[in-house]
């Protein structure tokens, strides 16, 4: 049985997604919806990290329930930087790149949840299946958000 490996991978990929969302949020503080939603949606992944760590105990895993945190100071510096560069053209392209990255990472997480759900059904572990049912829809919403923001932003950024 390799469920522990799948959980470890998901623990890593959710942490990574939360980190990415926070970083993007900070980089684009002047784009207020990106800033606020990035932080809101990072919290979903952080919650998933806790759930994964919790259910992981059943599979002999000792995963850190605390999401990896940003260094506070670096965060402030990046926010300040975002305010300063917010009036030049290039951050816009960076925004597309960042949203694309979120979309890709969330897609990866989504696939990981699917794999886990398939396994949970195979071995009839309802606790594990319940975790996937609680968390996976959030991941899909994170993906759709990134995709929608990409669509909404692309035209102005690319034709300007």
């Amino acid at each position: 049985m390799k469920i522990d490996l799948a959980l470890e991978e998901l623990h890593r990929s959710e942490n990574d997604l939360a980190h990415e969302l926070l970083q993007v949020s900070e980089r684009h503080k002047v784009d207020h919806e990106i800033y606020h939603l990035g932080r809101d949606l990072a919290r979903w992944s952080q919650r998933h990290v806790r759930e994964i760590a919790d259910v992981g105990k059943n599979y002999g895993l000792d995963l850190d329930p605390e999401p990896e945190d940003e260094a506070g100071l670096a965060e402030r510096l990046r926010e300040k930087g975002a305010e300063l560069i917010g009036r030049r053209g290039n951050p816009a392209l960076l925004l597309l790149r960042d949203l694309r990255e979120i979309y890709m990472k969330a897609s990866g997480v989504s696939v990981d949840w699917e794999l886990l759900a398939q396994a949970a059904q195979g071995i009839k572990h309802t606790d594990l299946l319940d975790v996937t049912k609680r968390c996976h829809p959030d991941t899909l919403r994170q993906m759709r958000w990134a995709n929608a923001k990409l669509k909404e932003s692309a035209t102005q950024i690319l034709v300007t």
Binding site: V30, D31, E33, G86, R87, G89, P91, A92, Q156, T160
Partner: peptide
């Protein structure tokens, strides 16, 4: 409008 203000801010 809030996005328009952002586009005015970034000069686009």
């Amino acid at each position: 409008v809030m996005q328009m203000m952002r586009y005015v801010e970034d000069g686009s």
